[in-house]
């Protein structure tokens, strides 16, 4: 591993997909700026990576990116430390599970602030210097949920639809420059997303989840190649293809079944749930659901200990033991 001087800034880096992406960058000798909400978890994650990859520099910045002006604060702190960001990874995000008319509005507002506003704001802050240098890469983390309605995770899905639309517009605008924007669309992934969203008991959370490692490795590989759209795992690819074929209402219906809670945690429920989706291919459970992170109860966000960050990497929460 050669010692490079390039640096990657990753938000939501203390766990899940963000941490695994950080690991990929570290493995290739890139320095890291790891950003997350909770200092304790962030330090722990940073120390682990520093031990694994002693040749690189690991910086940490703990702040709540869902707050007004937080992206600006982050940008200034990075500048203050004399660091140049060569790779920007907009990964921090979270979800909220439940019927919209009952779910937690404040949490959903914070979600829009993080998943949309901070996402846009950080892109706006780092794009000009990348354009001046005519170098730099931005990885925008969407979701398979970007491609279809997501009942019981309506706001989360909407924020991811935003990421898809915004990202693709940017890609076209940046054609002809050497600055690339890649869009990553993970399927349901095993992270603490589900815990934060309160969706631990859903069919989806208890089904075949992708691992954060495989999502990150696939994402990193595509990102470094400057790939426009990266959909990790076969399951994810099938879900995206399906979204092009089935009408929105059918997708929505199938997705809802995956988002429903299992009465007992019997696996039998999983199979039953997927019969609606006509285009289901291999695994019965997954196809309609892209939403990786719908959570069942809004209230669990703060209390669930594994979830300490408000912004887990999008993908599902660890199954509660």
């Amino acid at each position: 591993m050669e010692n490079k001087t390039s640096t990657a800034l990753i938000t939501g880096a203390s766990s899940g997909i963000g941490l695994e992406l950080a690991r990929c960058f570290a493995r290739d000798g890139h320095n890291l700026i790891m950003v997350a909400h909770y200092r304790g978890k962030l330090q722990e994650a940073a120390e682990k990576l520093h031990k694994e990859f002693p040749g690189i520099r690991v910086e940490t910045i703990a702040l709540d990116l869902s707050k007004d002006h937080a992206p600006e604060k982050l940008y200034k702190e990075v500048q203050h430390r004399g660091l140049q960001v060569d790779f920007l990874v907009n990964n921090a995000g979270f979800g909220e599970y439940g019927p919209f008319y009952k779910s937690d509005l404040q949490k959903e507002l914070a979600m829009i602030h993080l998943n949309v506003i901070a996402h846009v704001h950080l892109t706006k802050l780092y794009l000009p210097e990348m354009i001046s240098r005519n170098a730099g890469k931005i990885l925008q983390v969407g979701s398979v949920a970007s491609f279809m309605p997501a009942p019981l995770q309506s706001v989360y899905g909407a924020t991811k639809a935003f990421v898809l639309s915004f990202g693709e517009a940017l890609q076209e605008e940046l054609k002809g420059t050497k600055v690339t924007v890649s869009l990553l669309f993970p399927p349901a992934t095993d992270t603490n997303f589900f815990n934060v969203a309160g969706a631990q008991d859903t069919v989806l959370a208890n089904g075949n989840l992708a691992t954060a490692k495989e999502v990150a490795e696939s994402g990193y590989k595509g990102f470094m190649k400057g790939q426009a759209r990266i959909v990790p795992t076969l399951k994810g690819k099938i879900e995206v293809i399906q979204s092009n074929i089935l009408p929105d209402a059918a997708l929505a219906k199938a997705m809802k079944k995956q988002s429903e809670e299992i009465k007992s945690k019997k696996t039998a429920t999983k199979k039953a749930a997927t019969t609606e989706a006509p285009a289901t291919t291999s695994s019965e459970t997954e196809t309609p659901k892209k939403r990786t992170t719908k959570t069942a109860k809004a209230k669990t966000t703060e209390t669930a200990t594994p979830v300490t960050e408000t912004a887990p990497n999008k993908k599902g929460a660890k199954k509660t033991t």
Binding site: P99, F100, Y101, V116, P149, A150, P151, L152, Q153, S154, V155, G157, A158, T159, K160, A161, F162, D248, A249, A252, K253, M255, K256
Partner: peptide
């Protein structure tokens, strides 16, 4: 956002 959000609600 509005389209995705609303279509999810329609199902709900």
């Amino acid at each position: 956002f509005v389209k995705s959000f609303s279509e999810s609600l329609q199902d709900e």
